[in-house]
Design a protein around this nucleic acid. Structure first.
Length: 319
DNA sequence: TCAATTTGACCTAA
DNA sequence: TTAGGTCAAATTGA
């Protein structure tokens, strides 16, 4: 919290204050000792309000501190922060070496339901390195665009698990894809030829009328979705806001473009227009289950039955 | 056989 | 000098 932005700080105080007020109301209700159905209902509402306040506060803290305590609670809404609003992550250390446009996504995965297949954000990535980072418990994985040699695409990304909260991955995109159209075209062809591929992001070819909710449901069912261009989207419009109720089924950080394509931020990824969005950080959550690959990237999502663990590198492992 | 991943060595900016 | 980033040979898996 040491570098928490003023806005976040105010929001945090506001949420906590609100929670305290509601708690007092609840206390007053309890002191009333009435047990009519109306009062019970009211108490439940108050409890939900308190929970919501806490969770919002934790979301804010999560974004700024990544405390392990906060990690136990899945943030209910994606938090979008603009550049320079806070400490970023250690990836900021890397920025001193590169001038290419970069943006960071902070992605949380939480075990719960099953997903199948690797995350696919519309681009194919190849891992070219892994490095232990000073002060980090987990190594950082380095990925570059598969079409680097063919199209000279210089886009790269770095994936690192958060120390404080192993369910959070910091994904930093560096540079922009110059192979966008080619890739999308290839993907489209591939999907048409093979149908849903195990190597593609779990998602469904978006129905023209599908809502984000539908997509989320489809996602949860392990269906496949083809991702395509997400060019020129803004984060605000890309991030589906998740409900602040405890019934959120899915909140995997994702983007949904105008075509309602579902995109997930891990291994392969649409560039989200990152070239114009330096250091923007998005934190989203997966209340529903998610898995990650045994590598630094979330390359392969495996069906989870809840018995997964983290391997020595801090990645999910089944068993 | 080919493509992807791993990993130790090397390069380079701070 | 050091740590982050990249290279490339070896390894692995489909």
């Amino acid at each position: 919290m040491e570098k928490m932005g003023e806005w976040e700080q105010r929001s945090l105080v506001s949420e906590l204050t609100q929670g305290r007020e509601v708690a007092r109301q609840l206390q007053a209700h309890l002191n009333g000792a009435s047990s009519s159905s109306y009062d019970i209902e009211t108490r439940e509402v108050l409890v939900q309000k308190i929970e919501a306040s806490y969770e919002k506060a934790l979301s804010i803290l999560n974004c700024n501190v990544n405390t392990s305590s906060a990690s136990a609670v899945v943030p209910l809404a994606p938090v979008i922060r603009m550049p320079n609003s806070d400490r970023s992550f250690r990836v900021s250390d890397a920025s001193k070496k590169r001038k290419a446009p970069r943006s960071t996504q902070q992605v949380r995965v939480t075990p719960g339901t099953a997903l199948e297949g690797p995350l696919d954000d519309g681009f194919s990535w190849r891992k070219y390195g892994q490095k232990d980072i000073l002060g980090s418990r987990f190594p950082r994985g380095y990925y570059r665009c598969t079409h680097r040699n063919i199209n000279g695409c210089l886009a790269t990304k770095q994936v690192q698990r958060s120390d404080d909260d192993p369910t959070i991955f910091d994904i930093t995109y560096v540079g922009t894809h110059t192979c966008r159209n080619v890739t999308s075209h290839l993907m489209s062809e591939k999907n048409q030829e093979q149908g849903p591929s195990a190597s593609s992001m779990a998602a469904v070819e978006p129905q023209s009328s599908s809502s984000s909710q539908d997509l989320l449901l489809n996602f949860q069912k392990g269906l496949k979705v083809k991702t395509q261009d997400l060019e020129d989207q803004t984060y605000a419009s890309l991030i589906p806001y998740t409900s602040s109720t405890s019934n959120v089924v899915f909140s995997w950080p994702s983007v949904i473009d105008n075509n309602r394509n579902f995109v997930s931020p891990a291994t392969s990824g649409t560039d989200f227009g990152f070239g114009t969005c330096d250091d923007q950080i998005i934190q989203a959550s997966a209340a529903a289950s998610v898995t990650s690959s045994p590598t630094v990237g979330l390359d392969h999502f495996h069906q989870l039955d809840g018995n997964f663990t983290f391997d020595s590198n801090g990645f999910f492992r089944h068993g």
